[in-house]
Every structure is written in structure tokens, then in C-alpha cells.
Amino acid sequence: MSRTHVTCVLNGDEIDFLCNDYQTLLSALRDELGMIGTKEGCGTGDCGACSVILDGQLVCSCLVFAPEVEGRRVETIEGLAEVDHLHPLQDSFLEGAAFQCGVCTPGFLMAAKALLDRNPSPTETEVRYGVAGNLCRCTGYDKIVRSILDAAARMSDPERQKEAT
């Protein structure tokens, strides 16, 4: 079966890849592009471990057919940090001990980024619903929610932002 050639913008870079039409975006990222930061926890959109941002919209990459991303922008965990510093969410997750095993962490970070992009100062409840599509079995969510709230505070406070960089 001939494979489909797909061109998209991945973490800011125009890239292309070959895939079978039945492959998901998750499979294309991991198996074709070697981008293993995006995780598979269920393959049915119920755990959020494979969360990526597609044209600004948070999605489960396991529920997107790979050819769908032709001409579109994809953001993954690998693109979250800048060259010389982490995203404030990454700093907060590190300092706030927001993960134990860490396998859900990339998905949580992408969901949290999408949330803060849309709502820079969410309430605790908004944070909880904003990451309700992401399962974490280790932490009980407490430190994740606190870390996202902390990142929001850092990002809205120019002093703390300067400090971080």
C-alpha cells in the first residue's frame, strides 16, 4: 500500500513525513518521526497522555488521523521549552513535584499550556476542569493543580518572569 506524504509545521519547523492513512497522529509522531515525548496511555482519547496542540486546539493525538495534519500546525512537548530556558509550566512542575512516574507529564503540560493560552489566570476549579481530560494515577492531582496555578502566577508577574530567565 502506498504511503501518504504529509507536510506540516511541527513545533515551528516545516517538516514532512510518510505515513499510512490508518495511522494516528500519535503513531506518526512516535513511530515515523521518533518524537517519543508524546505518550500513549489508552489509544481512545480517555487519558490525555498523548495531548498535543493542533492549530491552537488541544487534542488527543491518538484521535487524529495522521494525514489530517497536512498543512497544519502541531505543537508537542518537545517544543515547549525555549533553547535556553524552560517554559514556566515546566519550571513549576519541577519545583512543585507535580509528577511521580512522569508518564502523564507531557500530556498534562500540553493541556495546561492550552489552558493558560486561553485563560491566563484560571481559578483552581478552572484548572481542575482544564486538565480533567488527563489522567494521573500517582499524584492525586494536588501538586499538579498547584503547579499550574503557580505557573499562571509566574507568567502574569513580570518580576518573577524576569527572575526565571
Binding site: 482519547g45 490525555g48 495531548s51 493542533l54 486546539q57 488541544l58 487534542v59 488527543c60 484521535l63 487524529v64 493541556a111 492550552a114 489552558l115 476542569y129 482544564g130 480533567a132 481530560g133 488527563n134
Partner: peptide, 9 residues
Amino acid sequence: IGSDQIQGR
């Protein structure tokens, strides 16, 4: 209909 991720689709 589902989580934020599902809402995106």
C-alpha cells in the same frame, strides 16, 4: 462532550 481534548475535535 468529553474533555477539553475531545472538545477540540
